[in-house]
Structure formats: C-alpha cells, structure tokens
Design a protein around this nucleic acid. Structure first.
Lengths: 201, 201
DNA sequence: GCATGTTCTTGACACTGTGTCAAATATTTT
DNA sequence: AAAATATTTGACACAGTGTCAAGAACATGC
C-alpha cells in the first residue's frame, strides 16, 4: 500500500474553511487541492466527490459546534443559558473576516434545493440532524428551567420557536450584516419566551 | 432594428420558475433557453449575464409578492391579519410540486455568499430590500393594531421578530419539509407577540 | 533481496456551463 | 434601394466536475 501524502483531517479543515467562506458551489476542488497542497485527483480518490468531501468536513464541524453549544448551555440561570446560546450562535455567524454566516443555513438553502434528487439528500439530512440536535438541547434546557420554576410554558414549542429565530438570524445576517440588530432580536426573543421580566441573571 | 423574437416578460417568468425550482447556481442558461425557445446567445445579448437575468426576474416576483402581501394584511383584526400574513408566507414556501421553498432566503444564502465580489452585491440588495419592505408592512400593521388597542408593545421590535421567524420558517421548510410544523410555529409566534389570548378573531 | 500486490498519485480526457465575439440576418429609416 | 441598427447564431476560450489508465510508493511473502 502506497501511503497517503496528506493528512485526512487537515484536508477536512482546509476544505471546510473554504466551503464556509465561499459556499459549496462556489468552492472548486482545485481551490481546495491548491490550498491543501494535494492533487485534485487525490481528493477524488480519497473522498469520491465534492459533496462527499463537504459532508465529511461538515460532520466534523457539526460535532465541534454541538459540543461548544452543550458547554454554553450548561451553567447559570435559564436566562443566562439562553443568552449564552444566542451569543454563541451569533458569534459563530459573525466569525471570520469578512463574516462567514451560518454554514448550516447556507448549506441547507444551497444544496437542500433539489428535492427528490438523491445526491443532495444526504446533505439535507446532515443539516437537519444538527438542527434537530440543537433543538433537543434547547428543549432540555427549557425543561430543566421549568422544573426549577424559571420558565412557565411548553418547552417543546418554545424550543422550536427559539431554533426558528436562530435560523432567521442566520438569514438576516446575510441580508444586512447588522450584528447589533441580531443581538437585539435575540434579546427580544428571550424576553418574549421568558415573559419579559424573566428570572434575575 | 431587427425585432426581438421572444417576449421579454415571458422569458422572465420562465427563468424565474427555473431559478425558484433549482436555484440560481443550479439553473443553466441553456435550461432557460431551451424552455423559452430562445438561443442562449440571445439571452446574453438581452440581459448581459445570468445574474442580471435573475435580478430582473426576481424584481418581477418581488413586486407581485409584495402586492399580494399588502392585500392579505389589509383586513380584519390584528390577529386575523397576522394569521393571513403567515398563511401567505408558508403557502408561498410550499407552492409547487415539489415545494420550491422561499426564493428570497434561498437566493440570499446562495448568492450572498461570495465575499468581496461586487457582482453578488446587487442581488443581496434586492433580497434585503424585499425583506425590509415586508418588515415595514408588518410594522405598520402592528402600529395600526396598537392604535386600535389590539396590541401592546413595540411595533418595530415585534415586526423585526416576526420577520425573523418567517426567515427561520423558510429554513426549516428546507430542512424538514413539515408544513404542519411550520404552521404550528407561526401560530405560536402570533400568540407570543399578541400575548397568548389576543383579540378575538 | 526481490517479486508481487495494493493503494495512492498523476495527467489526459469527456462533458457541462459561462461568457465573448464576429459574422449573418431581419427590420426601420433615409 | 441603400444604410444604419439591433438581434440571432455558431464558434471559441475558459473553468469546473468526474473518470480513467498508467505510473509510483510502500508492505508483504518468497
């Protein structure tokens, strides 16, 4: 067996960085190959296709991101947790120069387009899976808060509402690039869900 | 002057239908040319580029859509108006077979991607403009409702919240394709903004 | 130590898509 | 009828995806 001349994980990182900045369709395998110092053909050999490479790179990101979220949602009052949640979300959208936006939302609208075409279905599933897992995390946090008397409402409905707002924030971020606006919307959402006064921080 | 062999508006309609179904990047000018019965070169001559053609087609759609929204927001109680607003929004996302999603959100995430590239800036502006105008419409509706005592809150903040939710709905639509879920979120949002009980319909 | 087998790499190729250009074409105006 | 003008058409250059066969590097068995 001839050994690989590149590191699998390095390529995944380099590829995801490009996908994040320029979109899947906007990134060519030549770009990635150049940046990674690998021949384009080697990437096809190792990953099969651009979409398959993206999928692996995305799963990597999703794991990291979910772990960070879990940590952010882990301490403090319910209000503090939700604040940390939105904060991490928005900071993620606004990371990079220029800001790169939300890779999940971007990918969903970029690839989740073709319904019925088996190819993009895997990607759609990956995006939907991360969203579902984040929703579950938020719901658990709300349920725990409810048990502590910090929240009075339906955790499932509220979690769905919150996740919808974060997806909306990802869109508004691309439309206006106005970070203070995003944070204002986030604060307003927390007030709405927690009932304006909310628990003291 | 040699006369055009095709109708400008027909091409715009045919093109937007394809863009809506397959995305801008996923639609080739050959596709549009074939469907419209026009030579590809003629499209370049008439519109300049794919993006310019998309822009014209989108502006057309945006005008129609805004008019429909304005009508939907024009009668009944505030709750009724907001319900009609979400209804039209979701129906729009779910129109077509298979459902085509939201062209504005799709376009924003698909084209608002390219960093620093002046080309896509026009498109981003067009998307942002429609969102802004819809927000203004919702805000006016809320302000009018407040004047009639049907709403007690900040119309600007609430309108921004509502528009954020609709953008989020567009994303969730692509992720899960679950229309009842979208309608549930919409209802929950109205309850949240109007204060759960709300004015009788 | 050398042959063999396996995997990776490399370059060539076919295909599709974007955009440009010059030549040919169809009208209107002079 | 000739000139002016805009549209159509086909050829071209270029970039991107994906495939393939041939070459290269290493592990193992003899």
């Amino acid at each position: 067996m001839r050994p690989r001349e590149f590191d699998h994980d390095d390529v995944l990182r380099i590829a995801f960085d490009q996908f994040w900045r320029k979109g899947v369709r906007g990134t060519s395998l030549s770009d990635i190959a150049r940046d990674a110092g690998v021949q384009r053909g080697s990437l096809y050999n190792a990953f099969g296709s651009k979409e398959a490479l993206f999928l692996q790179a995305y799963e990597r990101y999703a794991g990291d991101y979910l772990a960070a979220l879990q940590k952010a949602l882990g301490t403090g009052s319910l209000r503090k947790r939700l604040t940390a949640f939105f904060d991490l979300t928005i900071t993620n959208f606004r990371s990079g120069t220029p800001p790169r936006g939300c890779p999940t939302t971007r990918g969903l609208m970029e690839l989740g387009a073709a319904e019925g075409e088996g190819l993009d279905e895997d990607a759609r599933e990956a995006f939907a899976s991360l969203i579902s897992r984040i929703t579950a995390l938020v719901q658990d946090t709300l349920a725990a808060g409810a048990a502590r008397g910090e929240f009075d409402g339906n955790p499932a409905a509220a979690a769905l509402h919150i996740i919808t707002v974060t997806r909306g924030l990802a869109v508004l971020e691309r439309a206006f690039g106005d970070e203070p606006q995003l944070r204002k919307i986030a604060g307003h959402t927390i007030d709405l869900v927690l009932g304006r006064k909310g628990g003291s921080a």
